[in-house]
Design a protein around this nucleic acid. Structure first.
Length: 267
DNA sequence: CAACCTGTTCGCCA
DNA sequence: ATGGCGAACAGGTT
């Protein structure tokens, strides 16, 4: 489910537990959720540790604890964070439960495409610090975008937008939204994009990220009513800009919606 | 009942 | 050797 702004909103669900020690840690070990993770070290370090804070990078979240505990969570397709009463009983999809005096912090993920990582140490782990800079940061420049696109000349733009190394946090709906805002057809091969369109793509990438973070990311509010995401799911949806019936198809392996009028086929 | 899914990774093929 | 594509992952929802 979650992309950039949803991840930011979900991350804050655990803010209720900041400053309080974890009394017990419950883990449904042996699940693919914990692949590559030292679950014993996670339990040992976090038991008795205090949650200090958290941040988001793209679709990744990092929770910082006292005693040098760093917990990374990726929500995958169906992951979610929530807060329950301190004595609640974990359900079968609740893979990680951090119990505090006042409440329990829960990570659930029915489909188990998500991932939990753990690191113990003074500094944040390499798997966190090596993530690319945010699309709304000053480091994401038009020149940088041009450079990224130049490495994938034959790919459809939709595929490139879904690449987390290049567009961290962008998922299926955001990719469609950005291309629709920029009036560029999702199947356009990267190498055929006019310089002017690269500029437009850059501008709209930042705009969609910024506005999504200010609405969904801030408090779960809806993004602007005239955005594509409100109509892109159901067949029969119409372009909020010109009213044309939206086209749908599979591009880069994902369901994609676009407007045949304002996002014309690449030549 | 069958198809579909806001994500990632792997192996195959060009 | 790259790079792109489909399949696989697993369960819920339509």
């Amino acid at each position: 489910m979650p992309e950039l702004a949803e991840v930011e909103y979900i991350r804050k669900q655990w803010d209720a537990g900041i400053g309080q020690p974890i009394r017990t840690v419950e883990v449904r070990a042996g699940k693919r959720i914990f692949r590559g993770t030292d679950v014993e070290a996670l339990v040992e370090t976090l038991t008795g540790a205090k949650l200090l804070g958290s941040e988001t990078r793209g679709k990744q979240m990092l929770f910082r604890f006292s005693r040098g505990g760093w917990l990374g969570i990726h929500l995958g397709m169906s992951g979610h964070l929530r807060v329950e009463a301190a004595d609640f009983a974990a359900g079968k999809h609740d893979h990680l439960v951090l119990r505090q005096k006042q409440q329990a912090l829960v990570f659930e993920d029915p489909r188990m495409f998500g991932r939990v990582r753990f690191h113990a140490g003074k500094d944040a782990p390499e798997w966190w610090t090596s993530l690319p800079p945010a699309l709304i940061s000053p480091e994401f420049t038009v020149a940088k975008l041009r450079e990224n696109l130049a490495r994938r000349l034959r790919s459809p733009l939709k595929a490139v937008l879904l690449d987390q190394a290049l567009f961290p946090g962008v998922g299926n709906w955001m990719a469609d939204e950005i291309l629709w805002q920029a009036r560029i057809h999702p199947a356009t091969p990267t190498g055929t994009l006019a310089a002017k369109h690269t500029q437009t793509l850059w501008k709209n990438t930042r705009m969609v990220c910024r506005v999504a973070l200010e609405t969904i990311g801030r408090d779960g509010n809806d993004p602007p009513a005239r955005w594509l995401l409100h109509v892109r799911w159901k067949p029969g949806g119409h372009c909020p800009r010109d009213g044309a019936l939206l086209d749908r198809g599979v591009i880069a392996g994902r369901t994609t919606a676009w407007c045949p009028v304002c996002q014309p086929e690449p030549a």
